[in-house]
């Protein structure tokens, strides 16, 4: 049976802890479920006390001594507490002090089931904003392995925006490109899964969409893989699970527009807090929402001849 993303994370971690003298730290790592079964029961595991601020500093200190720590944040919302040393020292140390402080920040997200206002966010955009971070959102085993390989070569922190909804993923997610597509959809985080569902539905209605995966949010490599489908379709949409306003989706839409001179919009979480009852959820844009947006954009293009 193919390996799931969770199993991949666990194996990468096991190898790091057992063979590289690596180290993993976080809160409640060995408690129920071992962080959704992504942490192996082996050596070099540090159970942090419930100290979000000092914990990040301890992770950075470990990195100074070459241990390449994996720092687990079980809910991305907790990044606000953990950010100070990561933003102000870890990410700046190479540039200011010429010291390597490589921390693999596993920032996990979840949504739904009443997770509510402070356990349900995806927050990778904030880290894109700050100098010194590499930021990515792997959703497949292959992508995660690629991110890990990059980390082992890195001098600084990598913000790995994980989402529990992807932990059972076994397959890679291919790009979908057709020469006569009506629009190009760029997917980030779990918005990729709903975008693909939306594209399948639209296909049955005769609307053709390109689909391009975005794994690395920063640095964003605007290769032809990203720009060519847009050049041909003439219009694009970036979908993300993080908040849309001032977020990754808007930022990348802007970069794509600047590079291609084609019209690109963004769709992410709405600018409101999440309530616990189901009707107040505000997570990954649903396929229905993406479909509505795509149709709206195609309509705009028809009327304005943009692209």
């Amino acid at each position: 049976m193919a390996q799931t993303l969770a199993e991949t994370i666990k194996e990468i971690t096991r190898k790091h802890l057992e063979e590289n003298n690596g180290i993993i730290l976080g809160q409640c790592l060995s408690a129920v479920g071992w962080v959704n079964n992504t942490v192996p029961d082996t050596k070099n595991i540090i159970e942090l006390p419930m100290t979000d601020i000092a914990g990040a500093g301890i992770a950075a200190g470990l990195a100074i001594t070459g241990r390449r720590p994996i720092f687990v944040i079980r809910f991305q919302d907790f990044m606000f507490l953990n950010s100070s040393t990561l933003v102000n020292y870890t990410a700046k140390a190479k540039e200011i002090f010429n010291i390597s402080v490589p921390v693999f920040i596993r920032a996990l997200a979840t949504e739904g089931n009443g997770t509510g206002p402070v356990h349900s966010a995806v927050l990778h955009s904030i880290f894109m904003h700050m100098p010194g971070f590499k930021v990515c959102s792997p959703m497949t085993p292959g992508e995660y392995t690629q991110v890990w390989d990059e980390f082992m070569k890195s001098d600084g922190p990598i913000y790995v925006s994980e989402h529990r909804k992807s932990f059972n993923q076994t397959d890679e997610i291919p790009d979908i490109i057709s020469p006569d597509a009506d629009i190009t959809i760029y997917g980030i985080s779990t918005a990729r899964f709903s975008a693909i569902q939306a594209i399948e539905t639209l296909k049955q209605e005769g609307i053709k969409c390109n689909f391009v995966n975005i794994l690395w949010l920063k640095p964003l490599d605007l290769t032809e893989k990203l720009t060519m489908p847009l050049m041909k379709s003439g219009i694009g949409l970036v979908v993300d699970t993080d908040f849309e306003i001032a977020g990754a989706s808007q930022s990348i839409a802007y970069e794509l527009m600047k590079k291609t001179n084609k019209y690109v919009e963004a769709l992410g979480a709405e600018d409101r807090s999440v309530g616990t009852a189901q009707r107040y959820e505000n997570g990954t844009p649903s396929p229905e929402k993406i479909i509505t947006k795509i149709k709206e954009l195609i309509e705009i293009r028809k009327n304005s001849n943009c692209g």
Binding site: A54, I64, T85
Partner: peptide, 19 residues
Amino acid sequence: GHHGLIGENVPLAVGATLG
């Protein structure tokens, strides 16, 4: 070197010694 936020050198020192 210290980046200028008081006391953040303490968890850094602790982490480095743990390492």
